[in-house]
């Protein structure tokens, strides 16, 4: 892992991208890394665009409002359109399949993963998209050991959905492995 990694999670309200960012931050704490997580609040999050970020580092993180993201997760076209400019040449974009990346996007690496479709059709619950995304990001970036990620996921899902969410986790990992190869 690089010394400092900023992951921005974007989508529309209700997709659970904030929870994805919290899960990544929780995994960072469990792994002994430093982390800061925050999100957009206010009118912006009422059903419209939703944005959260997690900074992960081996060193203390002081200033907590990153301008540029090393990784951008986008689950909707609107969120991708709004945040793609906040990337740099070395950034990784993880977009839901079907989204088109604007031509002037600075990021050079792009993964298109069918996150929403997998949640709905394979796992059977659209609301598991956030766990699929977390697993995919972790696998693509090779951030944390699997058992730590699973533990972090389990700390943040409602009681009774463990089987479903672990299935979602496996699917997310599988999507990422496939995309990497």
């Amino acid at each position: 892992m690089n010394n400092r990694c900023v992951i921005r999670f974007t989508g529309s309200g209700g997709q659970g991208v904030i929870l994805t960012s919290v899960i990544m931050a929780e995994a960072a704490v469990l792994n002994g890394n430093k982390t800061v997580q925050s999100q957009s609040y206010g009118p912006e999050v009422r059903g419209g665009l939703c944005q959260a970020y997690t900074i992960i580092s081996n060193e203390e993180i002081w200033f907590s409002k990153p301008e540029k993201a090393d990784v951008l997760l986008a689950l909707t076209q609107a969120s991708l359109n709004k945040y793609y400019r906040d990337t740099v040449q070395t950034s990784v974009i993880i977009a839901d399949s079907g989204l088109s990346v604007p031509g002037d996007c600075p990021a050079s690496k792009l993964f298109r993963l069918p996150i929403l479709e997998t949640a709905e059709k394979v796992v059977g619950r659209l609301m598991t998209a956030n766990v699929i995304a977390a697993a995919a990001i972790n696998t693509l970036l090779d951030l944390f050991p699997d058992e730590i990620m699973r533990k972090a996921v389990k700390m943040h899902i409602p009681a009774g959905t463990e089987d479903l969410d672990m299935k979602a986790y496996e699917e997310g990992r599988r999507l990422a492995e496939k995309a990497k190869s």
């Binding site: 960072a28 982390t35 800061v36 997580q37 925050s38 999100q39 609040y41």
Partner: peptide, 9 residues
């Protein structure tokens, strides 16, 4: 707001 809305270890 900076500290109130931030998550950290």
């Amino acid at each position: 707001e900076i500290v109130g809305h931030m998550r950290e270890g």
